[in-house]
Nucleic acid binder design. Structure first.
Length: 654
DNA sequence: GTGTAGGGCGCG
DNA sequence: AAAGCGCGCCCTACAC
């Protein structure tokens, strides 16, 4: 990369060029973006941004942020790798210079100065750009658009981290010397002296991330579709706006659970409390053979726990489980406390395209997608999430979306038609009627309750477990964990075979996907692209599942491929699963876009669920409209029957 | 000291 | 022939 280093006053970006921006900031064990997330990190007392690297691709400049001529890149397009981080830093610095200009609108919604023209095209009628004022001139008004190269890389199923992305996209090994040097720079004793003390070569190293980010963006940006960019923006906005939280309960329970952990820890004759080794040693001292696993779901442990229920080792094991549960909850509550904004809402982050099939994932130190569903140790975490005053939560989720999508992708039109004709059936009932010989007129649920039949539980286990080629051994566990059934291996084998015999379309889907993956071995570069049935999308930048560098496993006859920079096993069951999950994600994503266009912006999304804050007066009508939008037939998936359940609740829950 | 692998467990 | 999949975070143990 031939980029000329210049002094800040000399930095004059080329007309029309996108500008790469990368901040360097202080961090240590107690003040890190990993633990605190972007917002809490940049508002930590120890936070300091001590350098910024800016480049237009031809020249680059590294200096203290206050020394950079921000007005020269005002109104331009910027790009950062993990934009939400750099944006949080930039906004924090702006707050320091000109005060916090975020206005609080009704319901706690914050209006942000950023507004992209792309957004304007897709979704008219949201917040306006607020500009002007002598002070803002001094700091600058910011970019017209601020893109994220990391999000674009994730969409294309490249590694998300900068070094991995550079290697995969540009074929550039980021010189280890560069990375090490830049690490050395981070550890530089007195960051404020940065501008004075750094030699030219060190500055060039520090500029490298911005230069690479811009180079990456030039490759991946054009392949990132407009509606996906829109989803990314909606995701970021949602997390920055955050959730309304019952802080009284959070504060109280954080203390209570912390105390509980300390008490139980003190009651164990070893430390650290969760050391499996020390637990095992203590058991043996008492002449008791410890269990092979301490996991609550492990069958061996279940038997062991029963056997030693009254004894001291039995109590230790139970206390360790309680410490884990309480400790987890205490950590979640503490993370929530750290994310409390001045407007009392809790910021959080959701990672756009965090999973390879495209789902969102948790991130930023607090995962809001895996809050316990039920009350645990005297706390219902979900109930700590509330609606803003005068509002109520509209919680809408798709019923059994993946099971429906699997039938759709397998082309099981008979089953889909039955489902469309009988909206009162759920997937378990459909499955029992279509493939398990259930013929009664009453609902399967009523039938099982009246007669004590286990048919529905079995149908549930089959639907949840067998659609993606799990074998008999796994099915024994799946049936136990998911449906509470106790089945022997031989019976499991019979059920698995029966399921496959009665669901030929699904079996054919596995086999066809497997064969297609093997076929691509004949063509360079061994890339298996599975197109989504989304015809509305620009084919040049459509959505695919991409398995790169497909190859035979060195030891056997199984396939592997590179996904998101990692080599993973590949077979028909996995591909069918990924395709199903990815398509279910697209169903939710397109509903999200339509809801936003109708003026409904979710405050939270969890895979098959969207949560909105709606005004009390219009709540019922709003919920009806939202579920209507979610259930709308999709032009790109004709014949896929969608069902959405909606609830109004003052506090979040299942 | 830092980084990471693996167990455990929460979610869809 | 057989193979559930997709995540994040905490804790411990261990390698460097």
């Amino acid at each position: 990369m031939n980029v000329k280093m210049v002094r800040p006053e000399e930095f004059t970006p080329m007309a029309g060029a996108v500008i790469g921006v990368d901040f360097e900031t202080y961090y240590d064990g107690s003040c890190s973006v990993k633990d605190l997330g972007n917002w809490a990190y940049v508002h930590h007392p120890k936070f300091k941004a001590w350098a910024v690297a800016v480049t237009d691709g031809a020249t680059a400049c590294v200096c203290e942020p206050s020394a950079f001529p921000w007005d020269r890149i005002d109104g331009r397009e910027w790009v950062s790798h993990n934009r939400e981080f750099d944006r949080a830093v930039w906004e924090r610095l702006r707050e320091e210079v000109i005060g916090n200009r975020e206005e609080v609108i009704g319901g706690g919604e914050t209006r942000n100065a950023q507004r992209s023209t792309l957004n304007a095209q897709v979704d008219a009628g949201i917040g306006e750009v607020s500009r002007g004022g002598a002070e803002s001139q001094r700091w600058g008004d910011g970019p017209s658009n601020w893109w994220c190269s990391a999000a674009a890389c994730a969409f294309l199923q490249f590694p998300r981290d900068l070094a991995g992305a550079c290697k995969a996209v540009l074929g550039v090994e980021v010189d280890k010397g560069v990375r090490d040097a830049s690490k050395g720079v981070r550890g530089f004793g007195v960051p404020t002296l940065f501008d004075l003390d750094l030699c030219h070569a060190e500055k060039a190293y520090a500029a490298n991330d911005a230069v690479m980010c811009l180079a990456l963006w030039r490759e991946v940006g054009p392949l990132w579709p407009a509606h996906e960019r829109r989803l990314f923006e909606l995701t970021c906005d949602m997390g920055r706006r955050g959730l309304c939280v019952d802080w009284v309960t959070v504060d109280e329970k954080a203390v209570e659970l912390g105390r509980r952990v300390a008490e139980l820890t003190a009651g164990l004759p070893w430390f650290p409390a969760l050391s499996a080794k020390k637990f095992a040693a203590a058991c043996r001292e008492r002449g008791v053979e410890p269990p092979r696993s301490l996991a609550a779901g492990d069958e061996g442990f279940g038997e062991w726990a029963e056997e030693h229920a009254g004894s001291e080792p039995g109590r230790w094991a139970a206390d360790m489980a309680t410490i884990r549960r309480c400790g987890r909850l205490a950590n979640v509550l503490e993370s929530m406390r750290q994310r409390r904004k001045p407007d009392s809402r809790m910021v959080y982050e959701l990672k756009y395209y965090g999973a390879s099939p495209g789902r969102w994932s948790g991130g930023g130190g607090l995962n809001v997608q895996n809050f316990n569903r039920k009350e645990t140790e005297g706390l219902d975490v979900r109930k700590c999430v509330m609606a803003a005053p005068g509002h109520v939560l509209a919680v809408a989720d798709y019923s059994q979306i993946e099971a429906r999508v699997l039938l759709y992708l397998a082309g099981d039109t008979d089953a889909l038609k039955l489902l469309a004709d009988h909206p009162e059936w759920d997937m378990y009932e459909l499955h029992a009627r279509a493939t398990m010989g259930y013929r009664e007129t009453e609902s399967l649920k009523d039938f099982c309750e009246r007669t004590g039949s286990g048919l529905r539980q079995l149908a549930k286990a089959r639907v949840l477990g067998l659609g993606f080629r799990c074998g008999a051994e796994t099915f024994v566990r799946v049936a136990r964990v998911m449906a509470g059934l106790r089945i022997g291996y031989e019976e499991a084998r019979r059920i698995v075979n029966e399921y496959r015999a009665q669901n030929p379309k699904i079996v054919h889907l596995w086999n066809a996907l497997q064969a297609a993956a093997e076929m691509c071995l004949k063509d360079e570069p061994y890339e298996y692209r599975l197109p989504f049935p989304c015809t509305q999308y620009d084919p040049r930048c459509g959505r695919y599942l991409i398995y790169r560098d497909v190859a035979w496993h060195p030891l056997g006859k199984s396939l592997t491929a590179v996904v998101g920079g990692e080599r993973v096993p590949l077979h028909g069951g996995i591909i069918a699963e990924n395709w199903t999950q990815g398509t279910a994600r697209d169903v939710l994503a397109s509903a999200w876009l339509r809801c936003a266009a109708a003026g409904f912006r979710p405050v939270l999304s969890v895979h098959d669920e969207l949560v909105f804050e709606v005004r009390e007066e219009t709540a019922h009508e709003d919920l009806r409209r939202i579920t209507g939008i979610m259930e709308r037939q999709l032009a790109w998936a004709p014949g896929l029957p969608l069902k959405a359940d909606g609830k109004l609740m003052s506090r979040y829950g299942k």
